[in-house]
Write a protein that binds this DNA or RNA. Structure first.
Length: 371
DNA sequence: CCCTCGATCAC
DNA sequence: CCTCATATCGAGGG
């Protein structure tokens, strides 16, 4: 690529996606508050809100909220629906295909958002970028009936901030010369990667706005937040982000989690609940021909504190027997250690993947030693 | 450099 | 009493 335009990145966010998808197949929902729920199955109302449409948000019902709280805020016309991920995925794929067709490169950010690099497609020209965004919005609406918010900026960090700036159905364009003025007055929380904990930590350093973050020295940030995060914060405060738009390489881990119908501290019960999770994970690994080396359990207590325990096996595997035995010993070890522990939820995960069965060096070494 | 575990984030 | 999945980092101990 001999041309080097300054980068232009586009971020697209499907507004209130799950609820919008439900409105799509039942248009009569559009005039009602809609709450899409992730039911845990423990009691008829236990679970959390996945997404709600804007009429529901006006009632104070938003993502992550316990369902029973949402019910308290709901009006009689409010519609509660269970999530239907399969259906949302089908729609999402259509959306992503449209996006890809307009892009230099593509990076998914989950079912409801994505980045595309449009530097070449727009020859580094923001006027063209704006036209492209309008075309994408039109295309999307026409082909799927969905609205979205789009942000256009010199990098992913800023494109995401921009797409979040006007919702729903927004289009925000951030040209390089506008960047610092635009971000300076914003709360540091607009930066993806700064969550509640980091924001609180920054507040203690008297930093709440991006302009204040930009005044801190890199050495201070690294001191406070460690190498990677400190460096990230230092760059972000200046609106800098070099990370490319590209599909993240390979999967790093698979995990499944579930809420127990009844709290338990009993090994046999925990194993029983884990079996379907292990079956699923194992089937997935076998289907994709993935071998894992590390097996972890997560236990969430009745007080919602979570604990993890992991074991790395000597050779990568996706054998169900080995998997089950390892999980059993993890649970067993855990319960021996925390005798007063009662579990509310549990999860299993596998990680440290390799694509084929290869004894590790230490395994070869051990095998040799045994002779 | 490897393992374990907790923390944090964001979907 | 509050879902689920996943990536990444850092500390602490080898």
């Amino acid at each position: 690529m001999h041309h080097s335009f300054e980068r232009i990145v586009l971020h697209l966010d499907l507004n209130y996606f799950f609820a919008q998808a439900e409105e799509l197949r039942k248009p009569e929902l559009k005039c009602k508050p809609v709450v899409v729920c992730v039911y845990s199955g423990r009691t008829p109302t236990s679970g959390a809100v996945g997404t709600s449409n804007y009429l529901a948000r006006a009632l104070g019902i938003k993502s992550g909220q316990p369902i029973f709280q949402a019910q308290q805020k709901a009006t009689p016309e409010t519609v509660f629906l269970p999530v239907d991920i399969q259906y949302y995925k089908i729609i999402s794929i259509q959306v992503m295909e449209i996006l890809k067709s307009h892009s230099d490169s593509f990076e998914s950010g989950g079912v409801d958002e994505a980045f595309i690099e449009i530097t070449q497609a727009c020859k580094g020209n923001y006027k063209k970028a704006k036209e492209l965004a309008e075309e994408i919005k039109k295309d999307l609406l026409q082909k799927t009936g969905l609205i979205c918010s789009i942000g256009i900026a010199p990098n992913k960090l800023l494109a995401k901030i921009a797409s979040d700036f006007q919702k729903p159905d927004g289009l925000t364009i951030l040209e390089p010369f506008q960047v610092q003025k635009f971000i300076n007055p914003l709360s540091v929380s607009v930066i993806s990667g700064i969550g509640p904990k980091t924001a609180e930590h920054l507040k203690e350093l008297h930093v709440e706005k991006v302009s204040e973050l930009a005044k801190l020295q890199k050495s201070v940030l690294i001191q406070e937040f460690g190498n990677a995060k400190g460096d990230f914060l230092f760059q972000a405060a200046q609106g800098l982000d070099e990370s490319p738009v590209q599909e993240s390489s390979e999967h790093q881990q698979f995990s499944r989690m579930t809420t127990l119908k009844k709290d338990s501290k009993n090994l046999t019960e925990l194993i029983e609940v884990s079996i379907p999770l292990m079956n699923e994970l194992c089937a997935r690994c076998q289907k994709e021909n993935i071998f894992f080396k590390t097996i972890s359990i997560v236990l969430v207590s009745t007080k919602l504190e979570s604990f993890t325990k992991a074991k790395t096996v000597l050779a990568p595997t996706h054998d169900l027997k080995i998997f089950q035995q390892t999980v059993q010993s993890l649970f067993s070890d855990f319960l021996k250690l925390h005798t007063d522990f009662t579990a509310r939820r549990l999860g299993i995960s596998v990680s440290h993947f390799s694509s084929s069965f290869k004894p590790s060096l230490s395994e070869k070494q051990r095998t040799l030693n045994e002779f």
